[in-house]
Each structure stands twice: as structure tokens, then as C-alpha cells.
Nucleic acid binder design. Sequence first.
DNA 1: AAAAAAC
Length: 496
Amino acid sequence: MSDSVATNTSTALGAAPTFDQFGLAADILKAVRESGYTTPTPIQAQAIPVVLAGRDVMGAAQTGTGKTASFSLPIIQRLLPSANTSASPARHPVRALMLTPTRELADQVAANVQTYSKHTPLRSTVVFGGVDMNPQSDALRRGVEILIATPGRLLDHVQQKTVNLGQVQMLVLDEADRMLDMGFLPDLQRILNLLPKERQTLLFSATFSPEIKKLASTYLRNPQTIEVARSNSTATNVRQIVFEVHESDKSGAVAQLIRERELKQVIVFCNSKIGASRLARVLEKDGIVATAIHGDRSQSERMQALDAFKRGEIEALVATDVAARGLDIAELPAVINFDLPFNAEDYVHRIGRTGRAGASGDALSLCSANERKQLADIEKLIKRPLEVEPLEVTMRARRDGATSAPRRDERFGRSERTEHRHGSRDEAGSRRRTAGTHDRPRGRQQPIDEFFLKPYEPSPSAMKRQEETVEPERKSAPKQPLAALLGGLGMPRKSS
DNA sequence: AAAAAAC
């Protein structure tokens, strides 16, 4: 409770802060107003004064808390006094650098910065991989004060000498934990070594792991810690339900949930790229407009998918964890976990796509017998048990192949449910609009509970079947020189 | 185990 400012505007509910209290320039406030924001979020209320004061920040905030504005607005403010209207590129050196782990996130942060700075003379641009370098190089050569980037492409530009980082006064590391997870540490170190030592550094991370603390102690100076929602907790306005389903029923379950709950727009998370593509195809066949977004799709496909989803042209965006963090899609009513993530933290990030900015949302997760470990990990992380209920999948998902763990659970009794899966293709197709919408299976007890209680153990016949049917995995050549990557890990190079 | 990110 650091409320030295708002004493005379306080109400019964306490201070009702406004953006006016921060002393931001009129041109910035105008842009904020035009964006429709009137009241700062908690992270904004805390971070903006600290950033304006020039201090380093170690911020823990869930996405959807208004984090981007919490650093963008004060950075724009601090750059403003020396903003230059000259056309000369030399008058527009990069003075603020913002790094993000994924291309989509970079693009989104850049859009925010663009919005908030539109009435100022400040220029900004974004660079990330997967797209032509030339337009980026042109923009950099024309000069920008604010640069948003993913690390790899930024280093590429550094090498091409299309950008100079020697005058950066402010650095933002957004989703820093994610960047470390993704092996960006060596790249980050290279970039940090190019920056002036005299600078302001803002580090945002979902968690303060030992690795993050080490990064902070190496590169931040006397940072102010700002924590809004306890990390690893989940928003209370997100209703979380776990549905027990057989692995092979998952596609049908997704389609059924979308239909039954009349979900207009939903992100469905899968653990694998192949699984995401397959599920998107299956949903399409079931008449749900779906598109997959993952790292094996081209950048233009990724951007098109996201744009179409934002425009409301797509009902189901089937995604890998490329979309788990940071993406801000307005008023998403629900997310579905087709697979439970291997990493419990990713669960928190995934469900953070719904229930944003105070709206309520549903996080619906499918859990098969072989995912109990992940479920337990998640409950441990969020420190509470999740509501688990059986889901009878009445929709016949056609030729359900959309699973990363094929047929591992065939042994579980499904005799009384197989009838749903034996209809002919046409029959299933003709009833798919209505199937699952009126028979409510909720009350009926299924023997499905049973397999959650027993440790998973494939039957000998299932094992045999798998050996026979599963193709030996093809090992692809390593995509990057691992030794080079390992060289930089864990040991920050001494720079001073 | 899987995903992401520079060419």
C-alpha cells in the first residue's frame, strides 16, 4: 500500500487512481484515453512511478495485468524531453530496447508502443525472425528511439551493422523466464555486453527462479521488486475444470465442449506441433472453423492465423505453447487444454489467456489416464486441487488421430461407450450439429474414475500393438550447434 | 517428453 498520492481522491473503497496522477505528458495521456483506459491496473500503479524515477525494476506480473503499458508509458515519458523532430536518422538513436521471447509477443508489444507514442515525435519499430530483413533494416536506418526485438534477429542486425545499441538508456526484458527456458541466455549476454553500463533495466518474469535471480543480480542495479499477483497463482476469475477423458476421445471432447458451452472463440493448447495441426483438421471436419498456430508454420501463416482469430473469423485457434504467454486477445471466454502441459508453469500461462482484465473465463482441461502426473504437478504449483469431473464424449470425433500418445489407453473399459463410435461416417456427420447438446451425461457415473486411481501401466497387448504400429522415430539432424549453445549457459561472462 | 528462436 504505497498511496502517498491519492489521499484526497480516496473513496470508501480506497484510492481510485487515475493515469493523471503520474505526471505523464498530455500527448501520452491522450493516447491512453483514446485506447479507452481510465484506471491504471495494480502493476501500472506500482511500476509507473518507479520507472519514471529511473530505478531498475524486477517485476512479477501475470500477462493480462497491463504489464506492457506499465513499462511502455513511463519509458515513452522518459524519452520525450529529448525527442527529436528532425528527419535525420542520427537524431533518432535507439534509446530503449525491449526484448521478448516470441515473435508474436514482440509484434504485440510494438503495437502497444506505437499506440501510446502516436502523438509524440518518438519513433519505434520491431524486428524478429522469419520475415524479410530488408524492411526492418530500412526502418532501423531511418532511425528509431524505441526498438522491440526477439534476440536472434536483433543480433543478426547487429552483425549487419544495421543497428547500433551503444546509446540504449533503457532495456526491458519481457518474459525473462521464458527467454531463459528457450535458451536465450547466450544471446542475452551478447546483447547486454553491447549496451552502455549506465542504463535502466526492467526485468519482467512470471517467476523468480534462481536462474532469474542470478540474471537480475548480474545485470540489474539495486532493483525495486514489484509483484502484483503472487506468481504461480491463478486468477480467481478463471473457473478451472478438468475433464477425465480417454486419450482417443480428446478431439471429440474438444468439439463437444465448444458446442455444448457455445464457445464463440477459444484457444486450444496442444503439447505438440503435429497434434495441433491434426486437431485443427479434425475440428474443421466437424464444422468448427479452426486454424493451427505453431513454430513449424511460416511466420506469415502464424500472423494470419492470429489476425483472423482476433478479427473473430476463427472459432478455435489450436496452438502450441508459442501462444501460451503474452498474447492479448480481448475477452477470450475460454481456453481448452487438449493436453496438460509437461511443465506446470505453462498451465498458468495458458489459462492466463482467459479471464483477462477482470472478465471471467473458463479454463477447461482434458486429462487422460497417462497425464495424472502433470495434473498433480499443476495442483502442487497452484497450491489447490482442481475440480475434476468425468466427461462422456458423445460426439464421434472422426478417425481421431489427434493425439501425441496414440492409443495408450485402449485397455480402459469403454465397452459401453463404443456404440458412439461405430456409426457410419455419414450418420455421424449428419448428427454432429446436435450430438452432445441435449443428452447431459453429467450425472451418470462412469467407470472412468477407476483409471485415475490406478497407476498407469500399459497392458501387454497394448504394448505389443504399439510396437507394431508405431513407426520407429526418425531422428532428424540437430538444428543448432549444441556445443556452441552450451558454451554460454550458466556462466555469465564477466564483462567489467 | 515438447516448444520456441537467426540465417
